[in-house]
Design a protein around this nucleic acid. Structure first.
Lengths: 339, 339
DNA sequence: CTGAAAGCGCTAACAC
DNA sequence: GTGTTAGCGCTTTCAG
């Protein structure tokens, strides 16, 4: 393995100069820098990150903790973070908890503490005070996605406003019997996303002078299958069949479209459907939805962190950053049957 | 930050003993070990991975390189690898190339070389000789998933056999006009998966005395939309409509099912469909498919690597490991219309 | 079974 | 702008 002193010798300078030239910290004359870079290139020298980290205290590595990886939202957040990190020369150490409590414990009590990361991004994880305390004890920056978390900077989406926007789209089209497929209670643990979306839905309705009918609410598990079953219940009801459905995830919305088809209903002629996410399949199904840009979220979290890692950083002013969202109208929504 | 000497002092032993007690390398009396462990626990001591790695040369970290992350197959491989690594106390550093050539270069020429990983797993990446050479120069173990790669140990699935099995399932049911939706040529770069699956399909047909009709082949891009379009072409043909479709991915198979429905055809009464993958949605659509267990693949790759990293390792005997696969029969396949 | 001490390869004061 | 030098926090011979 070629080391820094091989380069120093070849270039006729000291190791300190090599370090400075290659890292950009400290001043080096352009000529020397060029020579050093050339020699380093020829020799194929790459700094040993361990030695460098040990000496400098900087790891050039950030930890990303996600509850699952094989879901559209999370893999996209990670992909966005990865891209931004690569650009900054940082590595990304991934911790996917896979819903396992023991794994979560071991990650927070052991893995994250071994001084391997400069900062951590926690995605959709409602950190408990103990977890936050451990992380803070490390004096490493931490940002959450999906907050708010007490005492932690977070990127947060306004779920109430998201749901409201989706529902208002339907109201504006003239729908009055609007159903909602939300999350079930187990999923409410992290940040009450289901509750907040339901709240936004209800606010929109009451704002339009409509009392949210309990019969038009169904809980599901955010999957296609769950949405399918819930929509069957809703659309099969002989008395109060809704003319529109707002689903708290695109997968459930897609399930709803499939359920409608299986019942012989045509979307959007007989029933309008709007989802939430802008999942990769949304476009194929012509699904109207609220986009929430997970890749952007990952990139933004990295940006905040890298910025904070810059030397001479004042305390960050803003504690919370709002995640943007957008209504994307496709072909699953239209005016209701009778105009 | 509590360091090893804090623990040593508290426990009344030397730092060497603490190191031995906590790492398990070298002998320590049970009594001492217990005392050290207790003190370390009380103090909340966690080794600094940098210092440890620098001194020992072991990183307890492996790099996983994937072409994309937001696809069912890759995120599941990573999830499997993650689980196995966590168990072994290893970190997982992720490099998702996102199909970007510059990123790929920078990962192979820079990131992977900074001595941060003990080994690397390359998923569905046909490493070029230069990339392999760099990695070998590091003297780090390397395993590929999806091989074969010249000079690299790989986990390989027998794509020919997979396709053959799928096709034979259809033949056994009595189908004779069997179409195939395979990959297009751009996707053939890595390991010729599309070509091999097509080959297996053709072998099965000729084995049954049927000449593969060129009109019954369509190329697509492995997505639902691509499968949908391809199936429309196949099923819309007024003269040679196939009674069954074998798709090289579940997403394309699902697209085919949707296309059939849109044409008013009933699956499996009018047309049978079999996919490849056992994607999470396969079950919902009742899709008959060939499962290929991506999580298992990730775990297995880790297992091979961790085994090799054990001190005193002889050269690995087997160069290639076969990935298991299984026909899963659901409700998308049945005998053809006329029996 | 345990301790002393020499590094691992680099960075960061501090001089010049 | 550049060299000298003292560590960074651990692991690992080598003694005992």
């Amino acid at each position: 393995m070629v080391g820094i002193d091989d380069v120093a010798r070849q270039a006729g300078v000291s190791t300190a100069t090599v370090s400075r030239a290659l890292s950009g910290n400290g001043h080096v004359s352009p000529a020397t820098r060029l020579r050093v870079e050339t020699v380093a290139g020829e020799l194929g020298y790459v700094v040993s990150s361990n030695a460098s980290s040990l000496a400098s205290g900087r790891m050039k590595n950030i930890g990303v903790v996600v509850p699952f990886l094989d879901r559209w939202f999370f893999s996209n957040v990670v992909e966005g973070a990865q891209k931004a990190l690569l650009r900054g020369g940082f590595d990304l150490t991934l911790y996917s908890l896979a819903g396992d409590y023991d794994e979560r414990r071991s990650v927070f009590e052991h893995f994250l503490l071994r001084q391997r990361v400069d900062a951590v991004i926690a995605v959709s994880l409602e950190l408990n005070p103990d977890e936050v305390a451990r992380l803070h004890a490390l004096e490493k920056p931490l940002v959450g996605i999906g907050g708010p978390i007490a005492g932690v900077r977070t990127l947060t989406i306004d779920d109430v406003a998201v749901a409201r926007l989706a529902t208002e789209h339907l109201l504006a089209l003239g729908h009055t019997r609007i159903a909602h497929i939300g999350g079930n209670l187990e999923l409410d643990l992290d940040f009450h996303l289901p509750t907040n979306r339901r709240l936004g839905y209800e606010l929109a309705l009451t704002g339009a002078g409509i009392t949210p009918p309990p019969a038009l609410f169904q809980a599901a598990d955010f999957t296609v299958r769950g949405g399918y079953q819930a929509a069957k219940q809703l659309l099969g009801n002989p008395h109060e069949r809704p003319s529109a459905i707002f689903a708290a995830s695109d997968e459930m919305a897609i399930g709803s479209i499939l359920a409608a088809r299986d019942l012989g209903l045509v979307v959007p002629r007989d029933v309008s459907v709007v989802g939430t996410d802008d999942h990769e399949l949304a476009d194929f199904f012509g699904l109207t939805t609220i986009a929430q840009f997970p890749q952007w979220q990952g990139e933004k979290a990295v940006e905040i962190l890298l910025d904070e890692l810059q030397p001479g950083k004042h305390d960050p002013v803003e504690l919370d950053t709002a995640i943007p969202f957008d209504l994307i109208v496709r072909s699953s929504t239209a005016r209701p049957p009778q105009g």
